[in-house]
Design a binder for these strands. Structure first.
Lengths: 366, 366
DNA sequence: CTGTTAGCGCTTTCAT
DNA sequence: ATGAAAGCGCTAACAG
């Protein structure tokens, strides 16, 4: 019963005009008579016509209004927020987005990128899985498809990237803990083989050194960057003979886990033990009042990445512009029961509002 | 420098065959000689050919290997997990997915669905924004595009749906609190105008009635279904003259907020005050040991919804099958410091493992 | 302002 | 087992 498919020619016939006129109406061309336009639009409504972008795209030289977004762990609120930020600007720009989660699998990542290419994406934003190689983006950029790498840096990839200032954030956080009088400060969570982790640990170490504190390798404990990982990490950290009194956590999930673990030992995070999280998520800002975090505003970062991509798509130039997202240390006012030597002070105080360096080189598109 | 675009005809020329043969190779047809196939594949590799699914789809009668996923709040971990579950089965099935976040905006939802249709999705999974009307899906189903509604029921929509058993979950949770000796039990968080909220409140009320407890309207307090909302809700609840001693929370985010709020008043959730959350998220399972939750396994639900959709896409029939996802009450072992009259017992104990009703009616596709 | 004509890259009979 | 030709739904010249 349902007609096979309503096409331009159907509506052309119904409106008593030719396909081309219909096409012009569809593109809101000013070259068409008001009367005809009205008749055509009526026919479109009556017949329930839906525009076929696939066909249009085949003919047109313009790009496809589709972008791809690939993330390594959508389960992590940080990436969910990031995706939401991208979604906002992409929707506003009339784009629709493929979204794929790799779960850190390089195979899935490769498949998914290939698939997106076959579907004609005109740009890609990716937070690469661990172990991603710069060469994985070669074909894309060779084909003139702009790519924006976010969150994790890929050395040697000649594409745009947007990274948070992990070194500065970790350093500021550690200095904050030192200023509060802590001498045994742990770095908890995350895997050592990522650039993100390396940068944060560098910042942490340099702050310790600058503060005249020795770096004890035992105080750096790896774990999954999850809440469960945080619980495990703090438990291992507390086994050390000379226990830490504070910790910088790889991310917020780890920090939450550390808080859980502390409470299980009757320690109050913020009073008895200093905790600083990383990769702050919006909602968390109202949630754990005693927790200090290094905030990177994931939604804002997502929006910015999306804008970087759109700029390239619209200009037709693929660039390799490295941007660093600013990062700020947020110290929350401790609430009610929690009060002690630290954390009782400023509310949402910005300690460091950091760099936003820009280093651009661009190559023209062929 | 980069060639305009490599097409089948280019690789046909390079391999010394015709387009049709190349097409056969691409479809892994057995009708083609091993030798030719090899030459063609070599050419494909050499020229860096990428298959154009848009063009293929235009000619082909088959469906598009693209599905749409629309959620109302990706910021909520529940939906992020749901999306991850869907992503898994869609990727495995060789599909790629559009994902859009509506943020409860009906306008955005309409735009996004229209846009996805124009791009030729062959199916849609949607967690509808508040206020979505059944008629919004009419055009889709009229066109033979299968739709699966998840999480929130839309009365009168003649499409498949997958909902969790909110009534049974809320009822079991409330009965659990009653069994622990609570007499003043609040229902915290969520907006009254959603079916989800209504069902949960019904389960809560019926459990109270069955337990011989009066339903005090003051004990039901609405708030945003977020962590911040939970803090607000518990604060309002504690203003009541005859205070509650326990609460069933609209979702996990609210429950976390309630815990935050309790701690701010020096109350320990689980010992001093009974808290039950809803919409349990995987990671949370290891995270808040003292919290009882009604678990709906969002990833599993996402996988199941995706399978429902794929079944319809592959069979070419659009059905209207209502499924109810099972729900279970999980009581976690209280940890360390927390010990008291309740919650000190079983770990991950399944109190209610509920219905999985299935009611199917199907209409043939035109 | 509107109609004609010619493809975009692919699949698909139908011949060979 | 392979080739020739037609056409999917649309846009882009170019005529009128």
């Amino acid at each position: 019963m349902t007609k096979s498919r309503v096409t331009v020619v159907d509506i052309a016939r119904a409106a008593g005009v030719s396909k081309s006129t219909v096409s012009l109406v569809l593109q809101a061309s000013p070259l068409v008579n008001e009367q005809t336009r009205a008749r055509v639009n009526a026919a479109i409504r009556d017949l329930g016509y839906v525009y076929n972008r696939g066909a249009a795209n085949l003919r047109q030289t313009a790009s496809s209004k589709i972008v791809g977004i690939v993330v390594n762990d959508l389960t992590n609120s940080f990436f969910a927020e990031l995706a939401v930020g991208m979604d906002m600007v992409m929707q506003s720009a009339g784009f629709v987005q493929f979204l794929a989660n790799t779960g850190e699998s390089l195979d899935r990542q490769r498949e998914v990128i290939a698939s997106m290419r076959e579907h004609g994406i005109s740009g890609l934003i990716i937070s690469p899985a661990r172990g991603t190689d710069a060469s994985d983006f070669k074909p894309l950029i060779a084909a003139g498809v702009p790519v924006v790498i976010v969150v994790r840096n890929i050395a040697g990839a000649k594409v745009s990237s947007l990274l948070s200032d992990n070194y500065a954030g970790a350093r500021a956080a550690t200095e904050h803990l030192i200023a509060l009088g802590h001498r045994r400060i742990a770095f908890l969570g995350g895997f050592a083989d990522t650039a993100v982790s390396a940068d944060r640990i560098d910042g942490y170490r340099d702050a310790l050194a600058a503060g005249g504190l020795a770096a004890d390798a035992a105080l750096v404990v790896n774990s999954a960057p999850s809440r469960a990982g945080g619980v495990a990490a703090i438990e291992r950290a507390m086994l050390i003979a000379d226990r830490p009194t504070a910790a910088l956590c790889f991310n917020d999930a780890v920090a939450f886990g550390v808080c859980d673990g502390l409470r299980a030992r009757s320690l109050e995070p913020g009073r008895d033990f200093g905790v600083v999280g990383f990769d702050d998520v919006i909602e968390a800002q109202t949630a754990v009042p005693a927790l200090t975090t290094v905030s990177v505003d994931p939604q804002g970062m997502g929006r910015r990445a999306a804008q970087m991509l759109l700029k390239q798509i619209n200009s037709g130039r693929v660039e390799a512009e490295a941007q660093v997202a600013s990062v700020r240390l947020v110290v929350r006012q401790s609430c009610g029961t929690v009060a002690g030597p630290w954390g009782g002070g400023a509310s949402h105080d910005t300690i460091a509002n950091d760099t936003m360096g820009t280093d651009r080189r661009q190559h023209d598109r062929p």
